[in-house]
Write a protein that binds this DNA or RNA. Structure first.
Length: 219
DNA sequence: CACCAGGCAAGTA
DNA sequence: TACTTGCATGGT
């Protein structure tokens, strides 16, 4: 049975947040020295563990080319080689190049993106080949600080295990569950998603389910 | 060795 | 709409 009433859903979502925050504390996610670094990281982390993304970002930083202008001038082959540790490097290198063209078409300034209505910008991002819903929303929330909730595999797993949705729930449906039942604050959405990731890494893996140490045990 | 990891797009029916 | 497949390295 899915959490039945509106009141029940709101309470449960807040309770989960409090439990996770008490267990893990503030996450300070997303790590990165600039919004642009966050955007690149959002593409690199597609279907990939963060530890592998860190190596790829580290390569770009070491070469001092983590900027729109510098990355645009790196040829595709060199870019592939630098981001290799993050996996899927052929398609990710192309996706980064495509994304760079989009940024340049908007003046290459993060401030320009912040001025666009979030709904319009989300659609613009989704129209870019290689940017899907999770990546678009990660950019909106973590790079541009828009109050958009990011859904990922861990979010689905946690919500279906705690009967907030079924296991085959669609992205938009699960996103609406959070956005319709929580205060519209980017800082809250940021912290909540980051806490879910922490929960997922520790307790929500497919191989190590339902650990007795899980802070959500029994709710 | 087998399987999993914070997706996405293109193709099929 | 609902499902399948390719993409690729690194960790357990």
């Amino acid at each position: 049975m899915i959490a039945p009433t509106l009141k029940h859903r709101k309470k449960k979502l807040l309770l989960i947040y409090k439990k996770l925050y008490n267990a893990f504390g503030p996450r300070n996610w997303w790590p990165g020295d600039s919004p642009f670094e966050v955007m690149v990281g959002a593409i690199l982390t597609q279907n990939t563990a963060w530890t592998n993304v860190e190596k790829a970002i580290g390569n770009l930083k070491r070469k001092k080319i983590l900027s729109v202008g510098k990355l645009s001038r790196v040829n595709l082959k060199a870019l592939k080689s630098l981001i290799k540790p993050s996996g899927f490097y052929n398609q990710k290198a192309r996706r980064i190049k495509t994304f760079l063209k989009f940024l340049k078409s908007r003046g290459s300034k993060i401030g320009n993106l912040k001025k666009i209505d979030p709904g319009t910008l989300r659609q613009d991002l989704l129209n870019i080949n290689g940017i899907g819903k999770e990546t678009a929303d990660s950019i909106l929330l973590y790079a541009l600080e828009k109050p958009i909730f990011v859904v990922d595999a861990y979010t689905k797993r946690m919500c279906s295990r705690h009967k907030l949705c079924n296991e085959k729930v669609e992205y938009d449906t699960l996103q609406a569950l959070f956005m319709d039942n929580l205060p519209q604050k980017h800082s809250l959405f940021n912290e909540y998603h980051a806490l879910i990731v922490e929960l997922g890494k520790r307790f929500c893996k497919t191989r190590k389910p339902l650990c007795s140490e899980c802070p959500l045990k029994g709710i």
